[in-house]
Amino acid sequence: MKVTELFRKGEFVVTAEVGPPKGCHLEGVVEEAKEYLSGLSAVNVTDCQSSVMRVGSLATCKVLKDAGLNPIYQLTCRDRNRIALQSDLLSAAAFGIDNVLCLTGDHTKLGDTPQAKPVFDLDSVSLLSTIKTLESGYDIAGNELVGDPPTFAKGAVVSPCSDSVDAQLSKMERKVMAGAEFFQTQAVYDTERFISFMEKAKQFDRPVQLGIVLLKSAGMASYMNKSVAGIHVPPDMIAELKADKEKTKAGITGVEIAARIIRECKPYVQGVHIMAMGWESKIPMLMELAGL
């Protein structure tokens, strides 16, 4: 089911992500997804997230789909040239996977195999445009595809709280131009900054899902502030996490904060995208607290 259909129907689209394991056994992922994520609109499957080698996003999407979930195939340009990217997109279509989230991908040097050749033959923008080309019945070299062309709900990401927000907006515009139909954002903590970003992003007229990462501890928040691009956890939030260590450890504080952010931003967005990072079990509670 294309998430674009859901947006069109005016549904508030809630998605969450799962990370495939480093190994070839997918049963665990499927079970966890069935237990905690089956109520959601769709499930993102990450593509060797943070440049760490794992089982493929496409294979994981396939088993999730078989298990009755609606997968969003995350595809990065880090590891494949334009031949492999197009080929994998056709493979996805062959499996009936019709949601794709296009990303440039982290640099190889950031992951567990820094020796690898960083490809970046295409980037997120040209990948979106490539999908549009495939949808027209041709590959990007201009050769005709056999049979009906594939169609996808084409998603992209944006960092609303980036310190270079204007450069991000300009990139968002290019993504729209290249064919992006919906956006998921990097994790948001500073709602004021996010809302002012959304005011500017409104002009592109594309549904946007608010990105949520559950805060597990004050340490995690400080680490993300220091090292993760586009993330800014305000100091009062860190203080809140510090205030009641037991409550934070139990996950309650993080979920409460996330729910508050969702409630504040909900009028400005068309959905939420939750990156639980191992706390998938907290998602039902979050949904309830956020009133979703």
């Binding site: 440039t104 640099h107 923008v125 990401v157 980036s162 300009s170 290019r174 586009g230």
Partner: peptide, 15 residues
């Protein structure tokens, strides 16, 4: 560092 030709990636922090 990724030789991107269509704009900034999401990896930039503090410029």
């Amino acid at each position: 560092s990724k030789s991107l030709v269509n704009g900034q990636c999401g990896g930039a922090k503090n410029g």
